[in-house]
């Protein structure tokens, strides 16, 4: 089945849409952040799966002339992206805590209701 030959894309798209849906649909700021994480994770998977080389081995240098390695570059990139993601999540959570302290809630509806007064 040709449509399944790139199943990694399907996984990535499924995760991405799930995350995106949560970001949009959930009114809870923490859940939004979780959605955002899922959303980002899908992209990480996309990258890493793109680095796979058929029958390649992990790219750790070994003795031997013609060993087929997987592409290490995506891993390096994604490591950076993960760190960025961690930073975003930490900052987002910190904001959520401050919002909780300021408004007494992390539900968007409650916050909006308070702003309208």
């Amino acid at each position: 089945m040709d449509i399944l030959s790139h199943y990694n894309y399907w996984v990535a798209i499924f995760l991405m849409m799930t995350g995106f849906y949560v970001v949009i649909a959930s009114g809870n700021l923490v859940k939004k952040l979780i959605g955002l994480n899922v959303f980002q994770a899908s992209v990480f998977i996309l990258y890493i799966s793109a680095g796979v080389v058929d029958k390649g081995v992990p790219p750790i240098l070994k003795e031997g002339a013609s060993i087929l390695y997987s592409n290490p570059l995506p891993h390096v990139l994604i490591l950076t992206a993960i760190v960025v993601g961690v930073g975003t999540t930490a900052l987002g959570l910190a904001l959520a805590i401050r919002i909780k302290e300021a408004y007494g809630s992390v539900e968007e509806d409650d916050i909006h209701a308070q702003e309208e007064d």
Partner: peptide
């Protein structure tokens, strides 16, 4: 305090 919510919105 709305700075917090707008920052969060921007973050998302």
């Amino acid at each position: 305090r709305r700075a917090l919510t707008s920052s969060f919105q921007y973050l998302v």
